[in-house]
Design a protein around this nucleic acid. Structure first.
Lengths: 360, 360
DNA sequence: CTGTTAGCGCTTTCAA
DNA sequence: TTGAAAGCGCTAACAG
């Protein structure tokens, strides 16, 4: 008995209930238009038979799939996992399923994901693209006139749900300056890889400029294993930075590690601040100081916007964009510059004497 | 101009190419059976028109959706995000899309996820259920004769891809004993919530028994914020444990935090070992000691098995189950019991004198 | 090699 | 209120 799936069609239910398939259809879609007695009978039989309407047939007929496409860089960064979680819950609440695809930050995959979703009859898409200004996938979407909304991206020509990263980083730099820091470095992933990275860079530059500091210290680290060691190198320099502004939390966590490898204590010898507010940051020691984004909320709002547009039957306008509030989480990885840090090379002789950086 | 999606049917392509729709269909599905000249013409026109076959119609007709359903507890635990990533890549490689649903460890959601996927015409499912022995969702699946495979779960009546947790924890306890530990406690999430938790518990019990130690120390922590404080409480007891075996990495990370709150240094004063091998564990300080599972691989293999079964047209037998190798990652959160730890109450006077546990 | 045709399961006029 | 019938877009016999 190799048969795979037990099917159950509306016809079969109709037959057993002694009604037409149209009536069964109405029981599921317009229950009010069916006599209670008949409705009940059909419902009972349908349940007994384990009948559920075939989604493909329904989609083909109504041209509504009740599925939303989602395009994300990766799920391995909790930022996007948290966001997807928000998307999923809001979508489910509105009666939509989601079809997620990841691009691993590759443009080619961005394209193919959008194509696949387009062919897959999704009613709309939520996406985090690399760069809205240049994305070909986005162009295709507009061309297809399929409603969509971007998450995390910010661009005036598209509907977006995001926080103002630039502003957030400007404020962060100001805060660090207030804490006495002047040698502040930006640690970023590949700058070209995303508009977020670029916005945060601009925030850093403007923040530094506002405090009349030189923003020469931008460090672009590849997203690989060696990153921590590279960073440790930087931290051993004579005029090492006293504060690190990291473009995202994952990077910040690596910096924490790098500081340890370099024999520096956080926050005593070095302040490290992240960006994103991923949940795990709160469980670390030191608890990660970071600019938090409401990740699940970003997902929920994006889904909400899209669902509304679908209900209205009109595409989303860029003017529907939402800027959600960010916040600063103090955490424990960021502190006032201690007096002895103003002199270079003080790192290993002050309070950290009993602290061995090396482990075997 | 409110129109939403620009459609493009096979008929339209056929018309413009001056052929029948069957020919266009063949160009996409059986290219060899079409004269090269005609094939090219059709391909050009299709591309120009941005035509892609309508997935719903194709699914309705062929009864093959090329979609795999995935049911997971949550994406907020990187274990499952990593696994999903593996599933996605293997599925994509085999020409399948995936439709993931999360249950948040709720049985009701497990049921509804399976129902929804069943109605959604998925060809097969990969799932992580709470407990294979009792899952109603699983019963429904068998009833529907839809091919499926479990991930992480282990049960002789179902096809599973997993590691042998029990064995892994037995070995771990032995290792800890070798390192001089005797007061070893198991820290687990809700034991009733998953078969994994129970397998790990059994491993702990057997391991302790094998070393003639009492396995009274099982701590079940709720998965909430207060966990760290509760744990810290435990760690301040006079005869506190010297080693914590945590049922998963997220819990282990909380324990690291709890140790800090209790003024204990890891691994000097306390050893902490996790289970799962989530990527971020390697970036922590101390690097998390843990039993690693090949999470992405589990996903890939599960998808692979399912795809094979689909190709063969036969459901998966429990005998197809795969036990993948686990490993121990030494990390830095686990060490030999230091001499002064054998005496209780030594915690705050030994090497940690300069170490302030409290932060404001 | 290509075209004609039927029908997958469902919803939705239109009549009764 | 219910039923008959058409058709969504596609593929798979079957003819030619």
């Amino acid at each position: 008995m190799p048969a795979l799936k037990v099917v159950m069609s509306i016809q079969e239910v109709a037959r057993q209930a002694g009604v037409s398939s149209a009536t069964v259809s109405r029981v599921f879609n317009l229950p009010d238009k069916v006599t209670p007695a008949i409705r009940q009978r059909v419902e009972v039989i349908a349940k007994a038979l384990g009948y559920a309407p075939n989604a493909s047939a329904r989609t083909l007929r109504t041209r509504r799939s009740r599925v939303l496409g989602v395009v994300l860089p990766t799920l391995l960064n909790p930022v996007f996992a948290e966001c997807l979680d928000g998307i999923a819950s809001a979508s489910a609440a509105a009666g939509y399923a989601i079809l997620p695809m990841t691009t691993d930050y590759k443009l080619a995959q961005e394209d193919s994901a959008v194509n696949l979703l387009l062919a897959g009859n999704v009613e709309g898409m939520i996406l985090v693209v690399s760069n809205p200004a240049t994305s070909r996938a986005l162009k295709r979407l507009k061309l297809a006139r399929l409603p969509y909304v971007l998450a995390y991206n910010r661009h005036s020509a598209h509907p977006c749900v995001s926080v103002n990263s630039e502003e957030a980083v400007i404020a962060l730099v100001a805060r660090l300056v207030t804490l006495g820091h002047t040698r502040i470095i930006l640690v970023s992933g590949q700058l070209a890889a995303s508009d977020r990275a670029q916005q945060r860079l601009r925030g850093y530059q403007q923040g530094m400029q506002a405090s009349a500091l030189k923003s020469t210290g931008v460090m672009e680290v590849p997203f690989v294993e060696s990153a921590a060691h590279q960073l440790a190198q930087l931290l051993r320099a004579p005029l090492r930075p006293t504060a690190l502004v990291c473009s995202n939390d994952l990077l910040a966590i690596r910096c924490l590690r790098a500081a340890h490898l370099a024999g520096l204590r956080v926050p005593d010898d070095l302040s490290v601040v992240g960006f994103d507010g991923i949940a795990i940051g709160q469980d670390l020691t030191p608890m990660l100081s970071t600019i938090t984004q409401p990740n699940a909320q970003i997902g929920r709002q994006a889904a909400g916007l899209l669902v509304q547009a679908l209900a209205r039957g009109t595409p989303l306008k860029p003017s529907a964009s939402l800027t959600l509030p960010h916040a600063f989480r103090m955490g424990e990885s960021c502190a006032r510059l201690s007096p002895d840090q103003t002199k270079p090379k003080s790192q290993s002789k002050s309070k950290s004497k009993k602290f061995s950086a090396k482990k075997t």
